[in-house]
Amino acid sequence: MALGKGPVAGACCAAIVLLAAAPACSTKVRRFDDGAGGGVVVSAASAGAGGAGGGGGGRPCDPGGLDACYSGPPGTLSRGACRSGLRTCDDEGNGHGPCAGEVVPAPDRCDTAEDEDCDGAVNEGCTYARCGDVPAGLPSDVYLLDLDGDGPEPEFPVYCDLETDGGGWALLYNSVGSEEGTTLQFWSIPHAERLGTRGEPAIGQNFYRGSLYFVGREYRDDIEDLEGTVKEVMRATAEGINSATMKLLRPTHVTGDANIYFAHFLSGWSSQDYDGDTDPEGNCAKQYQNVAQHYAKCWEYNLGADADEPLDDGGWGPHLGTHITDRIGLASDETRYTRVRRISRWTRW
């Protein structure tokens, strides 16, 4: 790494002219170049006209002067954790001592929110047993979970909400309204795929990962209306799930709307080819456009269908009964079963 001199920063002394002009005096500003075009002003040293070589009298450096130093790869300085250090010129001006205080790239750690290898990606390749293990300070985003380090899918991506009520929430399902009409078909999940995964984990996309019911212990449902207001509508707990019937084990209502808890958590699960709901009149999924989800009396909210005709509603997707919107303060589209922008279920353990 080469050290160079920057432009004159300003006068360092005042020349008093009596009979002849005093020698020119300027401040030489040293800059450090990290090889990527980033010059950093670090120190200034006074030099007379004869000191233009970097140190007075042609010395390599100015005695006692400080210069920036950095031994990391080009392009990593001031990125992530990487920082330059300082080196001190010796008393004779013959050279510099060691670079003190520099931070160069190191392997990324998984227990910090820092980019230790200075590549612009934080915790790249890190896996966690749950969203609650993601280090504090990182944003809500997609992270790799490895629940037990074994099995056919030891690592998988999950969107983690790291902000709500202390964070640690994994996105279990997410139904997002779409003018393109793609959401309705997404939720036509056959019984054989009830514990599978659909879509990519993202707060703005349709997503389903039924296998998280195995590990989930706390649950919450959020609904976002057409105006962008988000409300938490239900909290519950469970101790796992019966993988055949999809009934949650020992479910308990904690807070929020009791009707949503009863209809879409405490209840059974139905799909187009499996009638596990508790409605005595038939299969709720078949009645509502083959949308698979937990049902009791078939309706408080639906991940893919309307309850007003036409039930497909152009394929929009998530709908909520307006008796719920009125009660919890969400906007409606002035129909009995309003479109909403998003219905999300989160879990943590």
Rank of each mutant, 00 (worst) to 15 (best):
Thr127Trp: 03
Asp279Leu: 07
Ile16Asn: 14
Asp222Trp: 05
Met246Ser: 01
Cys13Asn: 12
Arg235Cys: 12
Gly93Trp: 00
Ala24Met: 13
Asp117His: 08
Ala81Tyr: 06
Lys286Gly: 09
Arg348Tyr: 05
Thr229Cys: 09
Gly57Pro: 08
Ala296Met: 09
Ala136Arg: 10
Cys89Leu: 00
Asp312Gln: 12
Thr322Ala: 15
Ile189Asp: 02
Ala36Arg: 10
Tyr301His: 15
Val29Tyr: 02
Ala292Asn: 02
Ser344Ala: 15
Ala24Cys: 10
Phe32Val: 05
Cys61Arg: 01
Cys69Arg: 00
Ile223Gly: 03
Gly58Asn: 10
Ser140Lys: 03
Glu200His: 07
Arg130Phe: 00
Gln293Ser: 06
Glu102Tyr: 04
Arg59Pro: 03
Ala170Asp: 03
Leu144Ile: 06
Leu266Ser: 08
Gly167Phe: 00
Ser243Phe: 11
Asp117Trp: 04
Asp222Phe: 09
Arg220Leu: 14
Thr347Val: 11
Asp312Leu: 03
Ala307Asp: 06
Leu249Met: 11
Leu248Ser: 01
Gln185Val: 11
Thr338Asp: 04
Cys131Asp: 01
Trp346Phe: 13
Pro310Lys: 10
Gly51Met: 02
Arg209Leu: 06
Ala47Gly: 12
Pro74Arg: 13
Leu147Ala: 12
Gly35Gln: 08
Glu224Gly: 05
Glu334Trp: 10
Val42Asp: 01
Thr335Val: 14
Asp150Glu: 15
Glu232Val: 13
Tyr301Ile: 06
Gly85Tyr: 04
Glu218Asp: 15
Asp117Gly: 07
Gln205Ser: 14
His253Cys: 06
Ser270Cys: 08
Ser26Thr: 14
Ser271Val: 06
Pro310Ser: 12
Asp141Phe: 07
Asp33Ile: 07
Trp346Thr: 04
Pro139Gln: 07
Ile241Thr: 05
Asn174Cys: 07
Arg198Val: 02
Pro280Arg: 09
Ile324Glu: 04
Ile16Ser: 12
